[in-house]
Design a protein around this nucleic acid. Structure first.
Length: 511
RNA sequence: GAGGGCGUAGCUCAAUCGGUAGAGCAGCGGACUUUUAAUCCGGAGGUUCAGGGUUCGAGUCCCUGCGCCCUCACCA
């Protein structure tokens, strides 16, 4: 049994033509010699390749003694099958007559072309593989209901072939990223998803309980602290591509579980990993452009890919701009000009004091301005690095060796989306311990239930972690860009949905 | 969390100003051996998301709830 695209490729025009000519000769001979014995007929000549294919029935045209069907599989949207009462097995013909849209069939027979020029399997046998007992979606429009597409992805996938293509592309891209990294000496590892402390990021975790040990566990919010332990252990280049879980809101760019590439390179810094990320993203874009070549707006040579109304060029070097520089360009005064920062914030209605009336530190006010005024100035169509964030905004990053007020951190922005932060990692256990303590001092009651001091990680740093560059790359967001999908749910096979049973129960009359 | 929009047959969608809930596809019965969203004939299909209200009369107006979508807020 072969897939439909392979079957289509196996069609042999010469054999088909020869068969048709010989059949015509036989017919002509019989007409001239109606009484001649069969043995005198020109011998049959059928060298047409025979194939066995399987697929889901998308169209079904019953002409009485000749039934036409179109099958779909993951390689071909619409592959034609003809079932003639004369040439197909009796049971096969019966199956064809009883077939409904959505059924799975196995069909065998020679490959031929119809009068209209369509490559077709002229069925000799048909076996039912599975009956589709659920009513199929509208055959032309497909399944349009957005909610149903996510909840019943299995219907979405066969009904809307573009959905399947997105996930085939995702698999291809992720595989290529893995290969790219492995070829450059990176080791892929798997670190705990169930953690006794959820560290490495500032998000709220999901909590679960382990019966055997009688303890609460947290779904990881990041693999960072474990990957760094591996640097301590002596692996100089490690990465993990896997899920993180964050107990926060959901929107077009956030799903509670999402896939992240996180990577560390010993004896590198943020420049090292920026360079690497740029190459990875460009390589991934090339892979996507090749896979999608022929689509509108896709230029495989660039590579340039459309994202909504944007045309994003991944081929040229990504733009780079320093945080302070972008700030000054956008606002017209320096980040450090506290008076003007506060004046501008008030002018724009940005809070300069907290709930209790205490003045907010200027750098945080400035960051609000930055996000409101400066970030929107970036060219959405150009992948752009924002570099050298103020140190106080990035407490867990190593301050710059040349300017301690600046953190060695860069964020990649594409189409207004934050794709991934890049850091020179902090490897001083005393500084790290102080930062942990500082972070813990400002937390509220809720936060204190899941945030704690990671003694073992500090111990690991005491053992000695090499200086390193580290980065995170949001795979889902990258796939949104590469597959031109407007929401993160469109690149996640089974995005989280509120369960429907809860909905119907609570919407019922109260008793 | 706030605001806005939407929810009609299995699916895709109509329904004017508040006046008998419709069509196409799917499904069912029938005809048809080169169709292409096959075609033709026949019949069937509804708690208009749920509950309440206004009205002689509600898919339509009002209220409440549920779900989804969008925008904003939150989010290293």
């Amino acid at each position: 049994m072969i897939d439909l695209a392979s079957a289509r490729a196996r069609y042999d025009a010469d054999a088909d033509l020869a068969y048709q000519q010989r059949e015509a000769e036989r017919k002509a001979f019989r007409k001239e010699h109606p009484d001649a014995p069969d043995t005198q007929l020109p011998e049959r000549l059928d060298r047409r390749p025979r194939v066995s294919v399987c697929g889901r029935v998308m169209l079904h045209r019953d002409n009485g003694k000749l039934v036409w069907m179109n099958l779909r599989d993951h390689t071909d949207e619409s592959f034609q099958v003809a079932v003639s009462k004369r040439d197909c097995s009796q049971s096969g013909f019966a199956v064809a007559k009883a077939t409904d849209l959505g059924d799975l069939l196995v069909v065998s027979g020679p490959l031929m072309k119809t009068r209209a020029g369509e490559i077709t399997v002229w069925a000799e046998t048909i076996e039912p593989a599975a009956k589709c007992l659920a009513p199929p979606p509208e055959k032309r429009a497909g399944l349009q209901d957005i909610e149903l597409r996510y909840r019943q992805r299995y219907v979405d996938m066969w009904s809307n072939p573009e959905t399947t293509r997105v996930f085939q592309l995702r698999s291809l891209v992720v595989g290529q990223i893995r290969q790219y990294l492995v070829e450059r000496g990176f080791l892929e590892v798997e670190t705990p998803m169930l953690q006794t402390q959820a560290g490495g990021a500032a998000a709220r975790p999901f909590v679960t309980h382990m019966n055997a040990l009688g303890i609460d566990l947290y779904m990881r919010i990041a693999p960072e602290l474990y990957l760094k332990r591996l640097l301590v252990g002596g692996l100089p280049r490690v990465f993990e591509i896997n899920r993180n879980f964050r107990n926060e809101g959901l929107d077009k760019q956030h799903n509670p579980e999402f896939t992240m590439l996180e990577l560390y390179q010993a004896y590198g810094d943020y420049h090292t990993v920026m360079e690497l990320t740029e190459q990875i993203v460009r390589h991934a874009a090339c892979v996507a452009a090749k896979a999608r070549s022929g689509e509108k707006g896709v230029d495989p040579s660039g590579p340039t890919l459309p994202f909504g109304s944007l045309q994003i060029d991944y081929g040229r070097p990504f733009d780079r701009i320093r945080y302070a520089e972008l700030f000054e360009r956008a606002l017209g005064f320096a980040l450090t000009d506290e008076a003007r920062v506060r004046a501008e914030a008030e002018k724009r209605g940005i809070a300069t004091h907290d709930d209790k009336g205490v003045q907010i530190e200027a750098v945080f006010v400035a960051n609000e301005l930055f996000e409101e005024v400066a970030e929107p100035m970036l060219d959405l169509a150009r992948p752009t690095w924002i570099m050298d964030y103020p140190a106080s905004l990035s407490p867990l990053t190593r301050p710059s060796r040349s300017d301690p007020t600046v953190a060695e951190r860069a964020d990649l922005f594409i189409a207004g989306m934050e794709i991934g932060p890049h850091y020179t990692e902090l490897n001083d256990p005393d500084v790290q311990a102080a930062k942990f303590r500082e972070q813990l001092s400002g937390i509220d009651d809720e936060e204190s239930t899941f945030r704690s001091f990671d003694e073992d990680f500090i111990h690991a740093l005491k053992v000695g972690m090499p200086p390193a560059g580290g980065m995170g790359l949001g795979i889902d967001r990258l796939m949104m860009l590469l597959a031109d999908q407007p929401t993160i749910r469109d690149v996640i096979l089974f995005p989280l949905m509120r369960p429907w049973r809860a909905a119907s129960e609570s919407s019922g009359p109260e008793k």
